[in-house]
Design a protein around this nucleic acid. Structure first.
Length: 223
DNA sequence: TGAGCCCGATGCCCAGCACA
DNA sequence: TGTGCTGGGCATCGGGCTCA
């Protein structure tokens, strides 16, 4: 999953980790990935893992759960590509005829499928140490008084309602982390002092788990 | 009988609101 | 300016129905 999450592309894409229901029957596509116009024009999507062989898969819109399910043909794809539980697929929408997705498979069993495409928009799967850090791209609302944090990260590290220390260089700020996984008291001061703007990306690296100290680095957005 | 289709339940995340 | 809460959107899962 970490390798899949490091995938970058100019094309829209989504990530799916293989669940039992995915292996056994169907997989869901975010509803925004297939427009109603496309749905009217096409009955099925085309999945590509290489440039040589496509898989045709029927789909239908699930209005109750606001999703699109891939059904007939999906199982063939699973079997042909030997997908197993825990494998992670990146579905990248590409500009081919009809509705086409390029599928990059990140296997749970050490090796990954190496995408065999001629262009260079394929994942930068550098080994990244994600365990101790997360990144946040600041939105206008984040520059107000609160910042929502990834709950999974906090949960994985057993971090709850507490005060944390944000360090930038030799300076540090005390910021309250509330029970809703948000930076609250102190966050506004931090963004003022660091002159952060919408579009800036903050990287929070957990340096001291006991005292909950994050070293913060940021990339400034230049319009 | 199994695959495909369809629906509903549940929980998570986030945006936004009300109020202190 | 900070906190608590709620509702909407979405992801995930399970189960019933239909049909070949």
């Amino acid at each position: 999953m970490e390798r899949a999450e490091s995938f970058r592309s100019e094309n829209p894409f989504f990530i799916r980790k293989m669940q039992p229901s995915y292996i056994e029957s169907r997989i869901m596509v975010p509803i925004s990935f297939i427009t109603e116009d496309e749905e009217d024009e096409h009955d099925r999507v085309t999945l590509w893992t290489s440039e040589s062989r496509p898989w045709l898969v029927d789909f239908y819109r699930n209005n109750s759960s606001w999703q699109i399910n891939l059904t007939t043909g999906w199982k063939n794809f699973v079997e042909d590509n030997n997908l197993r539980l825990g494998d992670v697929c990146v579905f990248e929408k590409i500009k081919k005829s009809g509705i086409s997705f390029r599928v990059i498979i990140f296997r749970d069993r050490e090796e990954s499928s190496s995408p065999r495409f001629s262009d260079h928009s394929i994942p930068e799967c550098k080994e990244r140490e994600l365990e101790n850090h997360f990144s946040v791209c600041l939105k206008p609302k984040d520059l107000y008084y609160v910042l929502n944090l990834p709950r999974n990260f906090l949960k994985n590290h057993g971090i709850g309602d507490s005060n944390v220390i944000l360090e930038v260089g030799k300076k540090s700020w005390d910021v309250k982390l509330d029970s809703y996984s948000r930076f609250t008291t102190g966050w506004a001061q931090f963004i003022r002092d660091c002159q952060l703007k919408p579009g800036d990306v903050c990287r929070f690296e957990l340096m001291d788990k006991k005292k909950i100290v994050f070293e913060v680095t940021f990339v400034t957005c230049i319009k």
